[in-house]
Design a protein around this nucleic acid. Structure first.
Lengths: 333, 333
DNA sequence: TTGTATGCGTTATCAT
DNA sequence: ATGATAACGCATACAA
């Protein structure tokens, strides 16, 4: 592949001049400029990004880490960040960690090797200390759906506990008294917080906590399906089902239908995240709205601002409040 | 950030020696090796990927272009490729084109600037000639869901026409005679081919083609919803609905339910792609199985093979046959 | 086994 | 405005 030297030779100018017309740093004689552009086209020249980064100590790229590349939640997250990054003519490098600690460390290492100008992380497994350390070593980083007091200014979060509370409270206000719950993996911060919200709601409305009504899932459809099967197998009786995310709620609804349980008449169901498909199942799924796309976009803006001095069009919101979205599955359709 | 020189200084060896223990190219004295590793840890040294690529003329990265980062179809595609790439210790760079010609060209340019060792493309807008040209210029590239005779060995495809035929035939075999169809954007290759399959099925079963029964959508849920509204508005009568993808089918089912139309009793519905959610809507959606994840994985293997001489565990399949998956929406639940 | 020296393709700092 | 030339951080051929 052609180099800048090939271009300068063909155009009969110095490498420096080629670099100048490429980057527009200094004015260049119109005639020479034409010759350079001509040579570039003729040779099919493309600047080598590696050489550029090496020389300029800027990669113009933002690294992003998500748990999975597939799935509605992370899809929205990636899309939200990318839109902003691309709008500002930067590039985004995406890597997935599969929520494994070793992989999470590995991909962050990779992105640091790429000398990303900043990192946007959905880090689930790394310790607070480890993340703080990366930040202290001089890497600009932003955290999604995770709060670490020491670097609070870098965190973008939804109040998961309140979300869990709202879910549960909604069920109770619909007149339900035996509210079952399918939890997310309890080692995950958000899953745990959502569970805490569930507990607080029960307490506030003076309903007894019954461990028989609670099962832990994996945030996947299959986990929700299995969760309902488990509840039924243990003979649990419930008239409402709070799910820690929408995907499990879909699986749960599938299992309930299979058992001939009417939703919401016999069991009201509510999810969390408000993914697009919540609106396309029958009955439509009530949920807690989690504006992931917007949050990720705001996170990207924070990076644009602190690294490249670009100004965001509106205020950046780092703490967003969960919002109840009622649909048919909780009898409000 | 620390450089290789900092490490060699601290360890009291030459830069070359550090490079050697890093890459394991030559045997290094155990003691020196220890000192180097110690220095690396102490300094928190991370090799600069840019310098590495520049010096070795290898980036160890595969570029991937998809139309969107969000959505079940591309999510599966990315996940399928990434799994294989990461298993072989290479990295994947993802970029999205939003199915716009200028953006598609732009992101490919970016990936070429990154000197990716190969490209995996879901290219919808670029001309055959343009893609062939990239290939001829020496870039290893692989095409997903697109067939270009000149570089057939680089193409991974599903027989979309046959898929469209099977969809339609299935409806007819269910005893339906007025088969409506919500098309994908007709400038897209796959959407057009699927439509051709629809037409062939009608012909083969001697059903008249009625333009009133056909609307063009945008491959999104909202497009499917709007499509049904349009059909109803124009007074079209139909007892089956073939949708060019699942997402439009979900939107269509939503619109039908809203109108009080019973699925499948009054109108049978079938989608295309067999996304995960097809199994979680009510009634469950019949579809054409499109193993995107597997195809993308195979595509990645082809790259691994041709660029890095890695051997795939099984045979790489570049042409896959569409497979009918019957569920409740077509009365086969 | 180890060190030295050169080159990779740019940008940036000088002169001119 | 333009041209040399020295970095940038690493791999590698060559010498020792």
């Amino acid at each position: 592949m052609a180099t800048i030297k090939d271009v300068s030779d063909l155009a009969g100018v110095s490498q420096a001049t080629v670099s100048r017309v490429l980057n527009g740093t200094t004015r260049v004689d119109d005639d020479k400029k034409r010759r350079v552009l001509e040579a570039i086209k003729q040779l099919g020249y493309r600047p080598n990004a590696h050489a550029k980064s090496l020389a300029s100590n800027r990669s113009n790229s933002i690294g992003m880490v998500v748990s999975e590349l597939a799935g509605p939640y992370f899809g929205e997250m990636m899309a939200g960040a990318e839109a902003i990054i691309r709008r500002n003519d930067k590039q985004m490098l995406i890597a997935s960690s599969h929520a494994s600690e070793s992989e999470e460390r590995e991909v962050i290492d990779f992105l640091l090797s790429c000398r990303c100008d900043a990192l946007i992380l959905h880090a689930e497994t790394l310790s607070d200390a480890e993340l703080v350390k990366i930040h202290q070593q001089g890497t600009v980083l932003v955290l999604l759906n995770r709060y670490i007091p020491a670097i609070a200014e870098q965190c973008f979060v939804l109040d998961n506990e309140l979300g869990g509370f709202i879910q549960t409270e909604h069920m109770i206000q619909q007149g339900r008294r035996r509210v079952a719950c399918i939890l997310g993996p309890q080692w995950k911060h958000d899953a745990k917080e959502r569970f805490e919200g569930y507990l607080r709601a029960l307490k506030q409305y003076q309903l007894p906590f019954d461990p028989e009504l609670v099962v832990e899932g994996d945030f996947q459809e299959s986990g929700g399906y299995a969760g309902v099967k488990k509840l039924i197998a243990r003979g649990a009786r419930f008239d409402a089902l709070v799910c820690a995310n929408d995907e499990m709620a879909l699986g749960a609804m599938d299992a309930l239908s299979e058992q001939g349980v009417a939703i919401p008449e016999q069991v009201a169901v509510i999810g969390f995240d408000d993914i697009a498909y919540a609106n396309y199942v029958t009955p439509k799924l009530s949920s807690i709205h989690f504006p992931v796309r917007q949050i990720a976009a705001d996170a990207a803006w924070l990076v644009m601002q602190s690294v490249y001095k670009m100004e965001p069009p509106e205020e950046i919101v780092q703490q967003v409040m969960p919002k109840l979205v009622t649909r048919q599955s909780s009898n409000c359709g």
